[in-house]
Design a protein around this nucleic acid. Structure first.
Lengths: 217, 217
DNA sequence: TAGATTGTTAATCGATTAACAATC
DNA sequence: TAGATTGTTAATCGATTAACAATC
């Protein structure tokens, strides 16, 4: 579909476009120009047109973009209609928060298993799933073949567990473990989320004062 | 201290440097060259030297960088010794996870108040603090003058609450609310964290397959 | 001293912005 | 048709990489 490889900055903006277009749709708006969308999102109109044109013409000269059509097309690109199997490992507060508050289905994913080493949690219903012991992990993976693992576990356990999960067929990690996974296999996709780094960036801007704008909007 | 404004990409890399240097320090390493640090972090040696030189010479020709000295200097820049007052609003799973698992002190911040509108939670001890009712928010702010607010609340409530908090003296937001705060005051610093967008980026890379590398490491 | 590695300048690369012809 | 707004090319800007003199 794409003419050539899409650059990272563009990819990272796609979910945000998708979100804004969803909001506009809910406001019952039908069409929008790149200029108006730029104003609302804090981007430039040029950039928006460049971004959309990575995937081919979504708009119409003199008219702009049809909001629901554009949203649907971006959704297709992002794969919101896929059903990628996801397991979550580590059912602490953060794991629970992600399992319960994040709509995986809306994002092309399906949470199919939750694991924790703490026996007190085993069997506890979370987001409609029973928390399973780690011992069942490999049998589960062989049976259900999840592709993505969410790691909401402490730092120390992350790398070893990741290696094990790769051998069980996991090829994508959403890693919250305060440790940068390094996997020397380009087929394995890693999204490291470092909440601590994000807080530090904010803290830096606070004490450095004005003019410090790190927002990527 | 800085000769000129530091660019956003550099600022965003600083916490990561700080983290890696901390790990090296714990491995009892004393010195490191830009080349070796680059190898470990997946950056280029050139970039590392450029980054550090934004702040003045941290290294020594022929030797490299002294790890603990470098770490301390980056820590100073990031303001880890500050004590910025932080309140957290929304004590659901995500709020609790952030309050309990994130070491604010290590990052120049101090969590001094937690608020939630749910009466069942009032008084519940979380990370050493009692959860307070929203009604006490303004009195609390007047008394303790927090500067940063963590918003772990639903989307709908975010913008209105943010405006109220600004009038109470809050000048930094760490926003997890699935809604992009837009505040037209450059003095107010906003760090939007969109976990959903992060998952979608991962999902995109999964179904697009190989060569999709959005890691910023 | 010789080797190593920085600090810094210059070259390259890529992303964003500007401009405008195409066209609805 | 005239006005609006895209798609797309060219110009600009900024960040990364390469190169190398300075120096420990």
């Amino acid at each position: 579909m794409a003419k050539q490889a899409i650059s990272t900055p563009v990819i990272r903006r796609l979910p945000r476009y998708y979100r804004f277009l969803g909001e506009l749709e809910q406001e019952d708006m039908e069409r929008i120009s790149s200029k108006e969308l730029a104003r609302r999102m804090g981007l430039s109109a040029s950039q928006i047109r460049q971004d959309f044109n990575c995937f081919g013409g979504f708009g119409q000269q003199g008219y702009g973009y049809n909001i629901s059509e554009l949203r649907e097309k971006i959704g297709m690109i992002l794969g919101v209609n896929e059903r990628t199997g996801v397991i979550l490992i580590g059912a602490g507060n953060l794991g629970k928060a992600i399992a319960t508050h994040l709509d995986f289905q809306k994002r092309g994913c399906e949470l199919i298993g939750i694991f924790d080493s703490n026996p007190d949690l085993h069997g506890v219903n979370t987001a409609g799933l029973p928390i399973l012991p780690m011992e069942e992990l490999s049998a589960f993976c062989r049976k259900h073949k999840p592709q993505v693992a969410v790691l909401t576990i402490p730092k120390g356990a992350a790398q070893e567990l990741a290696d094990q999960l790769i051998s069980l067929g996991i090829c994508g990690f959403w890693n919250f473990s305060h440790f940068d996974l390094r996997i020397n296999n380009p087929q394995i996709i890693v999204e490291n989320v470092h909440l601590g780094d994000s807080l530090m960036t904010l803290a830096y801007c606070m004490h450095r004062g004005e003019g410090c704008d790190t927002s990527d909007e």
